[in-house]
Design a protein around this nucleic acid. Structure first.
Lengths: 145, 145
DNA sequence: ATAATCCCTACAATTCCGCTAGGAATTATA
DNA sequence: TATAATTCCTAGCGGAATTGTAGGGATTAT
């Protein structure tokens, strides 16, 4: 259900969370080396995360990326939402800007919507409740990759 | 996140749940009329649900579909799983037959897997916990569609 | 200057989704 | 037995999304 983008993104964020505090930047190449992700693809993913404000970058030698905020203050939800969009099963179940599904006319009376909202709420609760710090806790360099 | 197949399928199942008990069969055309779904597409969806054992069908005049079991005994999870597959964010988070994602080698040491499993578990809990009877409760013919 | 890095645009292959077409098999009914 | 109503089966198709790749421009440390 999550795309490769989200998976690669989460793993990259784990690497960056692990390096948070050290004042240097981590290059794409470095992340690729430790997580085995396609370089150019990862580059585009990190760009999205930067544009969303989750990362800060610097160009040139010794350039790269680092987290814009402490790992504890970035939830997994923010990362996934940036890369995969809202995680509601139907568009009418989104918390922000909900719209009817194809063929449905009245959101208020839609009888599947309450169930879809419930699914959304649970997913959101899990992902909002976990931060990059939690993710980095389980991280072992050269462990699983 | 859910496909049109799942949405159409859930709505069709709601119609059938509403008619459960009456000994007649409900035709595709009838469901199309009450839910505004593409006829041939719905046909293929109902076929999948029948093959999964959730529906029983009969051909010929007065033929159609009905639920294979009482609405209370068919969970939303069964319907969605039949049409959209497992609802784990990653293949390694599936409860049945989990396999590593691309580029991951060791599932046991993967540090994103526990979080993915948690998401899966919550989604599954919601959908296993609700039946077609619950869905039909909110159903009003010619209400939302 | 040079080299290392991110940044931007474009595009290409593949897969998946949503849906349609056409007819064969089955069955109730007259 | 003929007819009509239905499901069943196979095939395919157009468009969108996913998953990348290629190439070069901009920036910056050394």
């Amino acid at each position: 259900m999550f795309s490769s983008k989200a998976r690669y993104g989460l793993k990259a964020m784990a690497v960056l969370a692990n390096r948070y505090g050290a004042e240097d930047y981590v290059s794409v190449e470095e992340i690729v080396a430790s997580e085995h992700t396609p370089a150019k693809f990862l580059e585009s993913i990190l760009t999205l995360l930067r544009k969303q404000g989750l990362l800060v970058s610097r160009r040139g030698p010794a350039g790269g990326y680092r987290l814009a905020r402490p790992p504890r203050e970035i939830s997994l939800a923010e990362v996934v939402r940036t890369l995969d969009g809202a995680f509601a099963p139907t568009t009418c179940a989104r918390s922000r800007n909900p719209i009817c599904c194809e063929g449905c006319e009245d959101m208020e009376h839609c009888y599947i919507r309450p169930f879809m909202r419930q699914v959304r709420d649970e997913m959101a609760a899990v992902l909002e409740g976990q931060s990059l710090a939690d993710l980095a806790d389980g991280y072992a360099p050269d462990g699983s990759n």
